[in-house]
Amino acid sequence: MSNAYLTYAAKRLGQAVVVILLAYIFTFVVVSILPGDPITSVLRNPQNGFTEQEIAEIIAAQGLDKPIIVQLWNALSGFLTGDLGMSMRSNRPVATLIAEVLPSTLILASAGLAVALVLALLVAYGTRFVPKKYGQGLLRGFPSLFLSVPNFVIGLMLIHIFGFQLGLFRVINPDSFWATFFAAIALGIPVSAQIAEVLIANLDKEAEQEYATVARSRGIGQARLFATHLLKPASLPVVTVVALTIGELLGGSLITETVYGRTGIGSLVQRSVSTQDLPVLQAVVSLGAVVFVLVNLIADLLYPLLDPRVKIVGGRKRSPTTADEPSIGATKAVAP
């Protein structure tokens, strides 16, 4: 690991921290300046039945009587130490509420990503090896088909077929392997479409490169060509695409959890939105930002390790296209 790479990694890490902090401050400010003061409007809602004294206590406990800048400082320092405040509905720490549901969502999202990757690879492999007359064109149409069908439609169809018709899993209060499996498929299919799209296009491009022809002239067969020559260069842009689909995966998890009646971040968000539980929402939004930034950070850090052509110059990575450009006529090295 070179010095240049470590400098680059440190710089990207620093940027990531700044982005997370800014995202937190941004959501905080948006919530604070929203007209109508949602916090007091919830507390003063007659249906909730708080007395004036209770309201004053809650406001004091949440620190809502302090100046906004002090509130931000308290929230931010709490956020950095893992204290995400108290839920306004259940009066329990937000961190605990999230910790209860996070594993379920993480399992679903990772399983969804795994499904997406496997499916994308299968479709891409098929487009190279299924002959035209046996439906290669159909396979090539899969990404656009999957992209255009909404996530919940696939989820409902899978429930209908495998839950109701075949009885593979319980539809009410599901917790079995199969329930997670089908939820992951419903979540993974639209995500796989984006990955497959990029992978197919890149495989087509790589297969036309001269090196592929030259490799074939060395007696390399099509299957080996795919596995040892084409897949790696074609997958490199996929790293970036996967990082970008994390948002989709998280958003999709919320919908899928609702459709499958799973507890998870999705159900927590749904409950908090309907009860306007702002500390929870703020925490979930910030968590989303953290996950998104982290995944993209990992992608950025991985890329120079995967692609030997990427050069790190002055703490920035340079793509192969710019790295290939010869510097103008400069050849003679003179000791400075």
Partner: peptide, 11 residues
Amino acid sequence: PQDPGNSLNPV
């Protein structure tokens, strides 16, 4: 081949 720069797998 003709163009050595593109005739070996770059990665």
